[in-house]
Amino acid sequence: MNKEIKVGIADMKIARREGVLITYALGSCIGISLYDPAIKLAALLHIMLPEAGSMSDMNVFKFADTGIHEMLRKMGAFGGVKRRYQCKIAGGAKMFDMKGAGGIGNIGERNIRSVEAIMMAEQIRILKKDVGLNYARTMLVDAEDGSVKIRTAGRPEIIL
């Protein structure tokens, strides 16, 4: 029986061997999953913004840069080895069609770019991604085998 472990907004959870990490309704946010198949270690991070900037007293999991770094640190502490990690990402959608542009409309796009850049710097290859467009996604990561499922309204479930 697979227990669902909820990952909230600006949150990160780790599971080992069993359990399904789930984060709901990724809009402009990005869900980042890392899986170490050798030790069946899974982590799911839900970030909102591309980078932390000068904010030091805020929740690190809110931002792609501080969030990913903390996730890597924690996974390492559990015995994870970076070069084995399988990375998959989802989200970064444009929820509202804002006429007249401005930052609020394209936060999803900025998040995608930030996550890609950070993973490249960490030398972790993003194996699969389901990003962009204009609908929200729910992301599930199975710690047993690292499989990732994406659920959206009105569309069939897909396996990344």
């Binding site: 990724l26 809009g27 402009s28 946010c29 909102m48 913004l49 804002m98 609908y135 929200a136």
Partner: peptide
Amino acid sequence: AFSVNMLGGIMTVPMAEFGY
């Protein structure tokens, strides 16, 4: 601007705007 989407997804727009 109007959108029909998952509640969590829609809420991320103002959240992201003020996340800093």
